[in-house]
């Protein structure tokens, strides 16, 4: 816990605040010293902790898999190669079962999604105070007020991270739709379903209705993708924080919740991956 005995709500809020770097209208370029300041920085600010951890974990994942891919042998695989092959085969099977088109992108995309999200979620199992405290000590060493050093370890509890990914997936959905159906096919899909009429006049009336419905369907995909992951992990993190406040009893409770959370971590990574595959396969298939 930071500073001079914060209240429970201060403690929770402190834990839920990202380390934000940006241009503050009054204080100039720098780290935000409070949630308020972070808000005032507007859109052109960046969460250093989210970016740092996510990129670090992504690099870790790619380095691990790349090191295996470089020395991959077709003989009897060793321990790490075995693990990597297992992951690759698992993802490949999932993709094959769901996505029937041919694409060089989908499978590696799914692997990246699964492993990266899993690793980011895994940071949730690090005791909630451990890394933020470390960051505060380092911050204090550099002369910052420990109470104002914010550090959020789990990137997927930052809606920016999940929404960033789901928007990239959304862009792919649109790209694949247009590539397989053409721009006119994509637009027709948006405007001529679900209500269809043979009379051109009635059809023209129905187009806005259809478009409204289909646009919601389309937009719901990235939003639900992002919010599902974010919500699950945010709630999990919040419970970890609450458990961390109850003193000695936190130990068995923390253990129980962490054990349960392992399931959520894996499941959410898997769901994000599977839904991405499903959405992309829906985008490529003609109705």
């Amino acid at each position: 816990m930071a500073g001079n005995n914060p209240t429970s709500s201060e403690y929770i809020q402190h834990h839920l605040q990202n380390m934000t770097f940006g241009l503050h209208p009054e204080n100039g370029l720098g780290l935000a010293h409070s949630a308020q300041e972070a808000q005032e920085m507007g859109f052109w600010a960046i969460h250093l902790d989210t970016m740092g951890w996510s990129i670090g974990l992504g690099v870790l994942f790619l380095w691990l898999f790349r090191s295996v891919a470089k020395s991959v042998s077709t003989g009897v695989p060793g321990g790490l190669q075995n693990f990597v092959e297992m992951m690759v085969e698992f993802v490949d099977n999932s993709v094959r079962e769901t996505f029937h088109g041919k694409s060089k992108l989908i499978a590696p995309l799914s692997l990246t999604i699964f492993c990266w999200i899993f690793l980011m979620n895994l940071m949730d199992l690090v005791p909630v105070d451990f890394l933020p405290m470390l960051a505060q000590k380092i911050g204090a060493w550099f002369g910052a007020d420990p109470a104002h050093v914010y550090f959020k370890v789990v990137p997927t509890t930052d809606v920016n991270a999940t929404l960033g990914m789901s928007l990239a997936v959304f862009a792919l959905i649109i790209f694949y739709s247009i590539r397989s159906k053409g721009l006119s096919g994509f637009l027709a899909e948006l405007t001529l379903h679900p209500f269809n009429a043979s009379n051109p006049f009635v059809q023209a009336l129905l187009i806005p209705v259809n478009f409204l419905l289909e646009a919601v369907t389309l937009l719901a995909k990235p939003v639900s993708l992002a919010l599902r992951l974010f919500g699950n992990l945010y709630a999990g993190e919040l419970i970890f924080i609450l458990i961390a406040m109850i003193g000695l009893w936190q130990l068995p409770l923390h253990f129980a919740w962490a054990t349960f959370h392992i399931l959520i971590i894996t499941l959410q990574a898997f769901i994000f991956m599977m839904l991405t595959i499903v959405y992309l396969s829906m985008a490529t298939e003609k109705h």
């Binding site: 990202n18 934000t20 940006g22 972070a38 808000q39 920085m41 507007g42 859109f43 052109w44 600010a45 960046i46 969460h47 989210t50 970016m51 930052d158 809606v159 920016n160 991270a161 929404l163 960033g164 928007l167």
Partner: peptide, 8 residues
């Protein structure tokens, strides 16, 4: 807050 992190 939604911010640059999203794009990053």
């Amino acid at each position: 807050n939604l911010n640059l992190t999203l794009i990053g």
